[in-house]
Write a protein that binds this DNA or RNA. Sequence first.
DNA 1: GCTATATTTGGTAATATCTACCAAATTGGA
DNA 2: TCCAATTTGGTAGATATTACCAAATATAGC
Lengths: 151, 151
Amino acid sequence: MVEEQDERILAELQKDGRATNQQLAETVGMSTSACWRRVRALEEAGVISGYSALVARERAGFATSAILHVSLERHDVKFVDEFVARVMQRREVLECFATTGDADYHLRVVVRDMDAYNRFLDEFMFRIPGIRHVRTNVILKEIKTGVALPF
Amino acid sequence: MVEEQDERILAELQKDGRATNQQLAETVGMSTSACWRRVRALEEAGVISGYSALVARERAGFATSAILHVSLERHDVKFVDEFVARVMQRREVLECFATTGDADYHLRVVVRDMDAYNRFLDEFMFRIPGIRHVRTNVILKEIKTGVALPF
DNA sequence: GCTATATTTGGTAATATCTACCAAATTGGA
DNA sequence: TCCAATTTGGTAGATATTACCAAATATAGC
């Protein structure tokens, strides 16, 4: 489905999401119109789900971030759905994954400062029903924060 | 430094990284030229570090991903630098954070299938010198994979 | 291997957008 | 209050987008 030339397009658009269609066509080696149509098809097929400016966290004033290990008391749909719904609408939670291992979920949370993080825990996380355990792993250093899939 | 109107621009460009300058100027309520110059300034200041197409992992053929907890034997600069250098150039590692807590590092790794993950461990991770422990937490479900800072 | 059909391609041109420049407006100090 | 520095909106030439077409290429049936 996603073939050779599409992968070249995807790789390039991951590197530069604002590349003009002309640049893109040149780097992947096809005409502007063919290239443009393939990009459009990838968008419509949902392979490209969107475009985003990548903002430097610290320079934008978000000094604090953490990875949370979260476990639920019970795993009834009721509790799981409630947890997922709450997490989805909380914008400080950039990522949330259900995982194997000791914790049920891994979350990455980004806030302006430690004070905001404390409020996040008190006012949001600790009020979610059915939580068994929350362990905070403060991020000391971002070694790498990539979004590009390794084509 | 990053003020009110800049945050509106950043928020919008996070939502739609390919918004035209005209759309952007309209949504944030300023002239196209003023808006364009602010965007340019944000780029040059490194607040906007780039733009990227967001590619749907599974639709692009990357079925498997995991969060790894990694600890080092020793924390001499020598070992740390070596670890960081290797992780940086390995494209399957999308994210790497130095954290507090039981593990020294949290990594998110994305590969095409479990076989590729096994190779990743054998050929890469287990050969890094000075590693004490690697614990794999397979991602069962991506609840949320956001990149937008919560302005 | 050959034809008919469907799909993909490259070229084109009207439309839309970008981006450098200018003069006017606004801001911040002294 | 006045001056200097910065930011603003308007403009226009240069650039890019995007829908259309005919030609080329791939696909399937026989």
